[in-house]
Amino acid sequence: MNKLTYGLFASALALSIDVTHAASVAEVFNGEMLGTNQRYFESVAGIPRESFGDEHKFKVQGCDITATVEGGTVSKLRMELTPKCQADLTQFVGTFAPAPGKPLTVGAFSASSGGGLSYSASCLSMCGNAADPSFYAHWEGPRAIGFREVLLEVVLASDPALDAANQWEAQMRKAEGEDYVMETRFNCDRKYDAAAQKAFEKVQVSAVTIGTELKASGC
């Protein structure tokens, strides 16, 4: 076997092995992966494409998944949602999650989980052009599922998301004034969570994070 033939054979074999062992989203983005060590996680998910501190970014079946590794173990998993990348949250929180197979909305998760979500946003007014702000819905699960938390993120870029944000902002601005909104005081007092729930009920989620000690936008 000459060098060219051998090289082509080796490349084909490597590609075959890689394809054969390519992980699925279901294998990587599930509750059993939380708490595993980094070496095991990467044996399933593959080598991360990027790493920033504790956060390691993977591409699985075309979907962007981020694993947060703290103290050597996976503490959080985040997945960006698209029409082709949908998360099955029942694999993390069981019947507290909406049935898989449909786009995830804030209202669907609120209904399946029994409510009790807290809402926040990185910015609603005078946000500048650095990056699109986000709206967050945070849920803390009961003891039955190990107090596991879910953080839904809606990037305020699509028309439905912007309409919902404007509706929420207008209600707060009318009642509390401009400074209340600009200083994001709504993230502190939770007075307008019900209004946020109503405004964002049908808005599709852009990304979801599951784990412990999840943090959204603060005061």
Rank of each mutant, 00 (worst) to 15 (best):
C219H: 07
T5P: 00
G141K: 06
A194Q: 14
A67E: 07
D189R: 05
A196I: 02
W168N: 05
E213D: 13
M33V: 01
A157E: 14
T105V: 11
T73S: 15
K198W: 05
T105D: 04
A194N: 08
G101H: 08
A10V: 13
L104G: 05
T95Y: 07
G211R: 05
K84C: 00
S24L: 11
E140H: 11
A97K: 08
A196Y: 02
S118M: 01
Q61Y: 08
D189Y: 04
K3C: 08
H138S: 11
A195Q: 15
L151Q: 12
V155W: 03
S75D: 05
V60L: 12
M182V: 11
E55M: 12
R49P: 00
Y40H: 15
S24D: 08
G177H: 10
I65L: 04
S122N: 10
F147T: 11
S110M: 13
A130P: 00
H56T: 05
A194G: 15
E50H: 14
C85M: 08
Q91V: 03
G177Q: 08
A26Y: 03
K102F: 06
D88S: 02
L81V: 05
L151Y: 05
G141D: 09
I47V: 13
L89K: 10
Q167A: 15
A131Y: 14
T212K: 12
A12G: 08
A194I: 05
G128N: 09
Q91E: 14
Y6G: 01
K76E: 08
L152Y: 06
T212C: 00
L152R: 07
E213L: 01
E32R: 13
G7E: 13
N30Y: 06
D159H: 03
Q86A: 13
T90L: 00
A67L: 09
A121V: 02
R49H: 13
L81R: 04
A99W: 01
A130D: 13
E201G: 03
E153Y: 03
A14L: 15
G107A: 04
E149I: 05
T73A: 12
A45G: 10
A161I: 03
D64E: 15
D54R: 11
I17M: 12
K76Y: 01
A12T: 09
N37H: 06
N30D: 13
M182S: 06
S158R: 09
E201S: 14
I65G: 00
S158H: 08
T68E: 14
A199P: 09
I145N: 00
K3H: 06
L124A: 05
T82N: 04
R143F: 15
S113I: 01
G94P: 03
L152W: 03
T95D: 12
L4H: 13
G71Q: 04
I210V: 15
N166H: 11
F96L: 15
L4I: 11
E32H: 15
S113D: 01
